[in-house]
Nucleic acid binder design. Sequence first.
DNA 1: CAGAAGCCGTGACATATATCACAGCAGGGA
DNA 2: TCCCTGCTGTGATATATGTCACGGCTTCTG
Lengths: 210, 210
Amino acid sequence: MNLDQYRHLFPELEEPLRRELQEKGRIVEAKTGQVLLQTGQNIRNTIIVLEGLVKLFREDDQGDEFFMYHLEPGDGCALSLICDRSHHASAVTAKAVTDAILLVVPVEHTENWMRQYRTWYHFVVGTYRKRYLELLETIDSIAFHNMDERLEFYLRRHRDTLGTNVLQLTNTEIAQELNSSREVISRLMKKLSEAGKVRLLKNGIEILRL
Amino acid sequence: MNLDQYRHLFPELEEPLRRELQEKGRIVEAKTGQVLLQTGQNIRNTIIVLEGLVKLFREDDQGDEFFMYHLEPGDGCALSLICDRSHHASAVTAKAVTDAILLVVPVEHTENWMRQYRTWYHFVVGTYRKRYLELLETIDSIAFHNMDERLEFYLRRHRDTLGTNVLQLTNTEIAQELNSSREVISRLMKKLSEAGKVRLLKNGIEILRL
DNA sequence: CAGAAGCCGTGACATATATCACAGCAGGGA
DNA sequence: TCCCTGCTGTGATATATGTCACGGCTTCTG
């Protein structure tokens, strides 16, 4: 398989680095719903999304999940970008939301790239900055807002990332990802619907204005 | 003023970079309670703590604050480490908890250092990684835990960072930083006291076992 | 078709947390 | 001394959210 077709995702990377990515990396396909990285699992590879959509979750000891953010094509998993040979345990869980294609590079190589390629550490630093800011927004939503606003924030992020007004999500899923309960989401969804902000479809939600 | 006395804080930095820090940076003193960086303010300087303790907050539009984490001597403010000349607006507020001494370097210089000095970008990347993980823990505490556990987490962090079992904090302060209310903290504190986990002093809290 | 599984909606209730009202206590300054 | 300020404690109450119990609706599968 060839990385050239994904060239547009990384316009800034220099040629030699591009060749290394092609040589050292494997291109892997993932099915919808597949877990790419499990909390606690050792990180041996840097993961970069080429196609499809990946969700990152924080997990607690009881297996509850909390949605952090999406990775889109061109995005790398921040934590997996900085790993020395000690193979840190992952602090997050990553799941494919759609069928996805990933670039997987053993951390032995990416560690060296940090020294060799200026554009690589720009990529790494840029990724951290972006995700750090995204976490801040996530903190805002839980620290300062009630569940109704958190739900709206959740829906907006999904609409923006997926680029569609129709979200194929069940209330049960949403409840898990917001660490709430199905019943609560159900009632709030009804309110949103009555307020004309969404329309409830038979298997999904259409966002009208949010 | 001289940076040499803080040499031990940055054992890994190479000599030329150390000299640049000395030349380009200013050493600034801050009083207890002083606001070093305000949400929304443009970031013109990279800030590194040399002495004392600094608290970082996330702020919402109504002026409510939410405690994120501490900066200790040797720590840099993550967001201020990556700033180009566009002078991004700060996403956080920083306050001195004690009298503090800071190293302040205009971002024009640090931007170049990213390219010139390997140890500098190691410092930057390490800082981001550390703070990212710290934010994840903060998210855990709000997403998965009730206020009583959040309070314990808050107290533990303060004990560990300050290195003392006696915290000079008022319930009012704690309530603000957890985005709760004084009365709630007061009641929970009573419970902690009854459980023998803390002792309430006349102006502070002594942590017995947490 | 029958039954199972998964989803949804909803009323009743429990609990955590926020808010309000008020009183007490200590310290500082006029 | 007296007042003011800031902190604390606590009961009463309101609100948001979580939990339980139930029934109804699809869809799948044997």
